[in-house]
């Protein structure tokens, strides 16, 4: 998924169901792929529907904080890059909805659940993009974190999801690089630009770490997910991987990360970092983040305002069918 930061940790209780699903387990345990018409446990199917749908919703909602800066991008080149990136995110959402639909749900149902709050999206998108530097920072940190989560998903046990992720990862390669480059230009620009960049990083660092979800000890659903071959690495492992990659990049940018406890630990061969305050994450998940209302309102408005147009297209298609016409392209 985009992150693992959708819900507060909850006790799951049950182990993955094994009886009656021998074929399924044989495929999963030999690192094969489960395909749409295969027999599968109901909880595997339901869990995947939720995970893939929430991943798709994250892409769609994620268009908003960055989309807000398309009109204001400070150069035409940056405007074009940002338009392309946000457009990619729409496309990624579509690939993921398509994957979810192979599990016997309709995209319309999934969107209903997003709009009603029954399904979530990555809470990282409930933070505001206050300055232009936030755009570069999102590309560098948020996409960076998403990539760390997504690369292992390219090998997840469910075929359509794995294939969608391969496609996403290929296209995503430019997203992180453009973010880093945009920030690099700022951090090596005027003093005001450098301050803008540092301020953005100070605000986005901890939320990016929280994208990996609660610590492993509080993450009870993970065991099932790992048994199913959906989750390959634990939250903390992925988070550590992200930190280790990102710290040297921050040094190259000439920017500091807002963690006084961040330091290389020679013994562990990893960076130590400070205690994460998850209470903020849980507030945001509950709906009390700075932009939760705004994101949902915009999303619902786009959908509702567009109803008349979608219905018109269906009516036209029905008329065309009745009259035996092929639907026209001028």
């Amino acid at each position: 998924m985009y992150g693992n930061d959708f819900t507060a940790p909850q006790a799951d209780g049950q182990d993955a169901v094994r009886e009656g699903h021998e074929d399924f387990w044989r495929v999963v345990e030999s690192d094969g792929r489960i395909e749409p018409r295969d027999e599968m446990p109901e909880d595997y199917r339901a869990s995947l529907v939720r995970q893939i749908a929430q991943h798709a919703h994250s892409e769609i909602i994620g268009m908003q904080p960055e989309g807000e800066w398309i009109s204001r991008a400070p150069s035409l080149r940056r405007k074009a890059i940002l338009m392309a990136k946000v457009q990619d995110e729409a496309g990624h959402g579509l690939y993921l909805y398509a994957a979810a639909e192979t599990l016997g749900v309709d995209r319309a149902e999934l969107l209903d659940k997003l709009h009603s709050g029954k399904q979530k999206y990555s809470s990282i998108f409930n933070y505001p993009t206050l300055t232009w530097a936030d755009i570069g920072t999102i590309g560098w940190l948020v996409d960076g974190a998403a990539i760390v989560n997504q690369v292992p998903l390219c090998r997840c046990s469910y075929g359509p999801y794995a294939r969608a992720m391969i496609r996403v990862c290929k296209e995503e390669s430019f997203h992180q690089r453009q973010g880093f480059e945009a920030l690099y230009t700022l951090s090596h620009g005027t003093p005001e630009q450098k301050a803008m960049a540092q301020d953005a990083v100070d605000r986005w660092w901890w939320p990016s770490l929280m994208m990996f979800g609660p610590h492993d000890a509080e993450s009870t659903h993970s065991e099932k997910s790992m048994a199913w071959g959906v989750k390959r690495f634990s939250n903390d492992e992925l988070r550590q991987r992200f930190v280790d990659m990102t710290v040297p990049q921050a040094e190259a940018l000439g920017l500091t990360l807002p963690d006084p406890d961040l330091r290389w630990n020679e013994e562990r061969g990893h960076y130590d970092f400070g205690e994460i305050d998850f209470t903020e994450l849980f507030e945001v998940i509950k709906g009390n983040g700075p932009c939760n209302q705004q994101r949902m309102a915009r999303r619902r408005a786009a959908h509702e305002d567009g109803t008349w147009a979608r219905e018109a297209a269906v009516a036209y298609a029905e008329k065309a069918q009745q009259h035996g016409r092929r639907t026209a392209v001028a």
Binding site: T102, R163, R177, E181, A252
Partner: peptide, 17 residues
């Protein structure tokens, strides 16, 4: 039926991008 799934300049030495 079946229903069913550069150009960017990065300074030298920066890895994982």
């Amino acid at each position: 039926i079946y229903r069913h799934p550069t150009f960017y300049d990065i300074p030298e030495g920066v890895e994982h991008l």
